[in-house]
Write a protein that binds this DNA or RNA. Structure first.
Lengths: 145, 145
DNA sequence: ATTGAGACCATAAAATCCCATTGAATACCC
DNA sequence: GGGTATTCAATGGGATTTTATGGTCTCAAT
């Protein structure tokens, strides 16, 4: 679990930075609101390209309102963030609001991308896996890492 | 049976390391709590990739909430750990807690992945194979192999 | 002036590396 | 075969590096 300080800075966990950098060769990530849950999702820019390609594939020559709607939902509220060698990003007020983010967050890898959760918000969700609930509960209780 | 030292280091058995390295070409493994038993499960990253692929296959173009929930349950409580040439990993407090791990552990291969048990926890489970119980009992009593 | 972003330096804790020791299993030699 | 070297796995301890995070300073925009 990582803290968000008074300047809204947030350290991206080093292992995550490593995969981002090996995948994309940049110190850059894309953040946005999740479609279904009160959390943020993040990924490296190569995955961003994949999302674009998927949209292209799905709609092809169709430039109707459906495409626009989908594009807005996928890309509309995203931000591209660079982090320096100390690995911190700055969360904008919008991101903090959309992710319901307070003073602490949990990074959760979910395969191709990752999620950023407020631990309290995570535990408030129905139907989470009990193992992950246990993990987040332990994090909240201060049993570290 | 291997010990967990004061720095929470744990030697991964050499034969297991060998299979991990031939399978994945890395000195890296994924650890997480088991779904049903109080133990940890571990696997190499090629198996991790397979889990990812299976998720992709199962949900395909479906990006609904079910997919997110499944991804969180599969990947959410896992850690990727590297080990050096001496073959040791560091067990985080959370992993020790979720695997009910104390000062000693038993590695148990179960096909494409392996399990890490506290010997006491293992013996406390109902319905274990008597031969394995005998083995773990012997290990606990100090009779090696 | 105030605010916030961004660069930079500082620090405590934790992870990682490196070297040394033990001890068991195997190879070797007479 | 019996005894002895040799290898390699597991582990202990210290030194070193990395990480997460706090603080300061500058600059630009408001």
């Amino acid at each position: 679990m990582n803290g968000v300080d008074a300047k809204h800075r947030l350290s991206v966990p080093a292992p995550l930075r490593e995969t981002i950098e090996t995948r994309s060769q940049t110190r850059e990530l894309v953040l946005g609101p999740d479609e279904h849950s009160p959390c943020l999702i993040g990924y490296d820019i190569t995955y961003f390209d994949r999302l674009e390609a998927r949209l292209e594939e799905e709609f092809a020559a169709d430039f109707g309102p459906g495409r626009s709607r989908k594009a807005r939902s996928v890309f509309g509220a995203t931000e591209h963030l660079k982090y320096d060698e100390t690995g911190r990003i700055i969360l904008s007020p919008l991101m903090r609001e959309m992710g319901e983010i307070g003073g602490q967050v949990v990074f959760m890898g979910v395969g191709h991308h990752f999620e950023i959760w407020s631990p309290e918000q995570f535990l408030a969700q129905e139907g989470q896996d009990p193992r992950v609930v246990k993990l987040v509960t332990a994090l909240l209780a201060g049993r570290t890492q």
